[in-house]
Design a protein around this nucleic acid. Structure first.
Lengths: 336, 336
DNA sequence: TCATCTAATGATAGCGCTGTCATCGTAGCC
DNA sequence: GGCTACGATGACAGCGCTATCATTAGATGA
């Protein structure tokens, strides 16, 4: 319906050749100011908007930044997206998402979908790509940023933090607060979760407080309800447990509710620590301790790095550790 | 890096002309089975993937379905997205998002961004587009679905439910449970929220139980913390309030925690009802009543309608009411 | 047997833009 | 004054695909 206005029509209106219009739009400093003025006038008079497909075909490069995340409903990832938006919304780049559903095969497939568009940049969550996916990323001739986590051997650039260390810090906090029988609650035991568990375990073992039977995990995706169920199972088997490090905040929230149901008071009869520090944690009663991670900033930083590379500026170090810190609240106030 | 394989190369390998390859891929039934077999073999031997930009340029139509939602971090919208994915992930269509941040101007701008790509379809959240945005949508020559809500005068198609009626049903439930002084908690009072408020008000007035001073609202975006603050303010001013209808589940959760802090027991001293029925509601202690909306199904249905139209099938009625129903739980068990 | 029709395939010409090189005019310099 | 250098603009071709029409071969019927 809305008739498409082409470059050529703008050029005719402005009395110049199409290529000059193209240049005026992309690198205004390369055309005479008065020419540019005429062109700008024609552009707005005709309501010209460039056709991204034509541009992509001509340049062999789309102004698209592809983002691969495991889930669109997990606040952890959507916070990163918000950061990306913040940095990218006023640029010529479009963001395009793919949801991997935590399935490596889907990630590979979506990577193919993105790659065929020759994206300007690629952002992928995590460091656990399949070998095939990794090869694709390495061959992609565009900037690539792995977000959420840091590890050895980045494909290209990396922004995140060590989940192992963050979990270890949380465990240290529990022990420092006087809890003697810490347990672990985990759902969807993917590699990232495993590394958090490893951090818990390492620290608990260092304090001689590790007990495998106090680790309750499931392959089920995480949720508040699952957190409640896990705590119930854990306490049934190991009633001596006096604190739980939960793999994420949903589980922690579920654990809190379950503790209420069981009549176990928090924090004196049970310490609870979550992971991610979603907004609800501080508002809970008692307020829940969690590990604060800088998700929004990860998005901003990843976008910034990609932009810097694309615009020929120095993107700075290829590996950025945004850290994580324990946000201590009442739920880990210590045993009675 | 990864060298691009073109249609022409596949054609050469298969010993046919490029156009035949194009046909074999798009409408396999129009080429001889053995020709098709040779082409398929060549495609996989060479690892050919079509270039979406070239296709878009040649057809004047991109295989993109644009989605405009207010927020990427609000579970309400991401659930719709999941539904879209479910229906679209095995098709040739890509989903592309725009986040409007609840700003009509941003919505207009993003609509322009999408439109210039000549998308195959467009999905927008809500029915509160600006006149300009509405005009753009009407002129877009592609299927358009408004989701999340239904109302008079759809741009094209619509899938959702009446927020007014859903809120009224929740209010009716509170009154039926015996609560006599119902209040309202609302954050980010956008038009959709206003309609929920109107539903609450209409029903409360019908029962002669409406009291403006028992309505506590803020322009601040919603969160668990805000829910707690609103309840505190409400109860300070109107201690007789014996139930709250919360505009969404975050507020309800915050209200629950605040009630705990204030020593006000739920449900006998205070009934709490949320809206959306996020997973956490059923896991809370006490479990929280909420209004269940079919967000995932909305996504599925919207995508289905668009596909039907694009594939020349009958999309069925243009306005689909997916309804909403009160999921009663312990938090509205009735006053003491 | 020959005209007529249909199914399968091909040739051609763009879609709207930009990379590359060519052209033109003018300023600057010896 | 004639030369180079350079900034501004333009001509041309082509990115990879598909719409359109043309062509071919085989099937059908009188």
């Amino acid at each position: 319906m809305a008739k498409r206005v082409t470059l050529a029509e703008v050029a005719a209106q402005a009395g110049v050749s199409p290529i000059t219009v193209s240049r005026a739009l992309r690198r205004p400093d390369t055309v005479q100011p008065d020419t540019r003025a005429r062109i700008d006038a024609a552009v707005s008079a005709l309501g010209y908007v460039p056709d991204p497909a034509a541009r992509a075909l001509a340049t062999g490069r789309a102004d698209v930044i592809g983002v691969l995340i495991p889930s669109a409903t997990n606040a952890v990832f959507t916070d990163v997206l918000s950061g990306l938006y913040e940095e990218l919304s006023e640029t010529r780049f479009d963001v395009q998402y793919g949801i991997t559903r935590y399935e490596p095969a889907t990630e590979e497939k979506l990577l193919g979908v993105f790659l065929r568009q020759r994206p300007a940049g690629l952002i992928v969550a995590g460091i656990d790509q399949t070998p095939a996916a990794r090869r694709l990323l390495e061959r992609a001739d565009c900037p690539v940023v792995q977000v959420m986590e840091i590890g050895p051997d980045p494909v290209d650039m990396m922004v995140g933090f060590s989940h192992h260390d963050a979990a270890a810090a949380a465990t240290r906090h529990l022990i420092a607060q006087g809890y003697r029988c810490p347990g672990f609650l985990g759902a969807r035991m993917d590699p990232r979760t495993q590394r958090r568990f490893a951090g818990f375990r390492a620290e608990a073992e260092a304090a001689s407080r590790f007990e495998p039977e106090r680790c309750e995990t499931t392959e089920t995706p995480s949720s508040v309800g699952v957190g409640a169920a896990l705590l119930r199972a854990l306490l049934a088997r190991r009633p001596e447990t006096d604190a739980v490090f939960c793999n994420n905040d949903d589980l922690a929230m579920g654990a809190l509710f379950e503790a209420m149901r069981l009549g176990r008071t928090v924090p004196d009869q049970l310490g609870i620590c979550g992971f991610n520090d979603l907004e609800m944690m501080h508002a809970a009663e008692p307020a829940l301790t969690s590990v604060r991670t800088n998700r929004f900033e990860m998005g901003v930083e990843a976008a910034r790095m990609i932009r810097a590379r694309l615009e020929g500026r120095d993107p700075g170090p290829a590996l950025v550790d945004l850290g994580a810190r324990v946000q201590a609240r009442r739920s880990t106030g210590g045993p009675c």
